[in-house]
Amino acid sequence: MSSLQSFLHMGGYAFYVWSAYGLSFIVLVLNVVLPLKREQQFFRALIKRKERVSKNK
């Protein structure tokens, strides 16, 4: 068995160890991406509203 394979195998605990790390990774990344996206949406919505207002003037 190569050393990479044995690393991934985690002494038989692969499922438990890698699910724990994978899940943590997903949750941590989502917590960065979602607020950034929301901020973008916020600006887009307000810019749109402004443009509507200035057009109606």
Partner: peptide, 18 residues
């Protein structure tokens, strides 16, 4: 690896800080 839990103890590095 841990003397009792082998490689399985590595979950500690995400569990305890969380």
């Amino acid at each position: 690896p841990d003397y009792q839990q082998g490689e399985g103890f590595r979950i500690i590095y995400v569990h305890v800080p969380s």
